[in-house]
Amino acid sequence: MAEQLYREIILDHYRNPRNKGVLEPADYSYEDTNPLCGDEVRIDLRVKDGIVSEVRFSGRGCAISQASASILTEMIQGKPLEEVKALTKDDLLEELAIPISPARMKCACLSLKVLKAGIYGVPQDED
């Protein structure tokens, strides 16, 4: 089970995060924490002509939360903002392609929660 959860894709994104950093100024910026692990994730976006032109994430925490943020930035880079708004938890989980137990769901979905809160300007319900 450990080998399934900590598959190469997770460890690779954890060790070599994509789009790591901050954008200042950014069109959308938000950060939040997951009190369970103490995970922190911040996501900054720049949007040009309705398209996500640049995205960066920063933060620290467990491998699942940080790899998820890295993977999410790859999913939305270059995508229309409207499409990004429509992203669901299942879309992200499918991309992570690992079995997430209920205890780790908050770790896995922190990045999406932060992204949505940034775009909408207010914290979003998790479900």
Binding site: L5, C37, G61, C62, I64, R104
Partner: peptide, 22 residues
């Protein structure tokens, strides 16, 4: 630099229950 939550999750997969956190 492995996050304690990841340590605990891997131990749990071996049925070893420990606490991770503050």
């Amino acid at each position: 630099d492995v996050h304690p939550h990841d340590v605990a999750a891997i131990l749990d997969s071996d049925n070893v229950a420990v606490r991770a956190g503050h």
